[in-house]
Design a protein around this nucleic acid. Structure first.
Length: 179
DNA sequence: GTTGAGCGTT
């Protein structure tokens, strides 16, 4: 099939050039500051994010480095890939994902359809909001959340356990006075 | 101060 060779599609092995680089194989002790020092050689950075394990709080051994210019990202990719950092051979590539996922609200994601006119609401909910191929490629689902109405995400009153715990520790902190 | 495949939250 000749068409297979015709144009190269970006997949996980061949991400498209991007201002966001994924850096893998890091030492657990490599910090964002360390990464800044190294990667800012190739151009001004827009940000650095080491990915931490949520439970332990320690580095998961990879990070994302954001450049302001793609050309700098490209150069950094070529020069820093395979370099040794804190005793580890690091792998640098264009990131396939662009951002941390926005924490899932766990609730209704639609917009309230406050139709002022009050007519017959026929096709408001369903399928109309397809964007483009953006979402398919792991680009931001982010913006969608920006339009999100946070009134619906507000939590209910704090759990009874919390208040009990509070009052107990509170009362404990009152040290009984001696005479 | 574990390693080591791996694309994401504080």
């Amino acid at each position: 099939d000749a068409r297979l060779m015709s144009h190269q599609r970006s997949d996980n092995a061949n991400p498209d050039p991007n201002t966001c680089l994924g850096v893998f194989g890091l030492s657990l002790y490599t910090t964002e500051r360390d990464l800044r020092e190294v990667f800012s050689r190739y151009g001004p950075l827009a940000g650095v994010n080491v990915v931490y394990d949520q439970r332990t709080g320690r580095s998961r051994g990879f990070a994302f480095v954001y450049y302001e210019r793609i050309d700098d990202a490209k150069e950094a990719m070529e020069r820093a890939n395979g370099m040794e950092l804190d005793g580890r051979r690091i792998r640098v590539d264009y990131s396939i994902t662009k951002r941390p996922h926005t924490p899932t609200p766990g609730i209704y994601m639609g917009r309230p359809t406050h139709n002022g006119g009050g007519g017959s609401s026929s096709s408001s909910g369903g399928g109309g909001r397809r964007r483009d191929s953006y979402n398919d490629r792991g680009y931001d689902r982010y913006d969608r959340y920006d339009e999100y109405d946070y009134r619906y995400s507000r939590r209910r009153s704090p759990s009874p356990y919390y208040s009990r715990y509070r009052s107990r520790s509170r009362s404990r902190s009152y040290s009984p006075r001696r005479y």
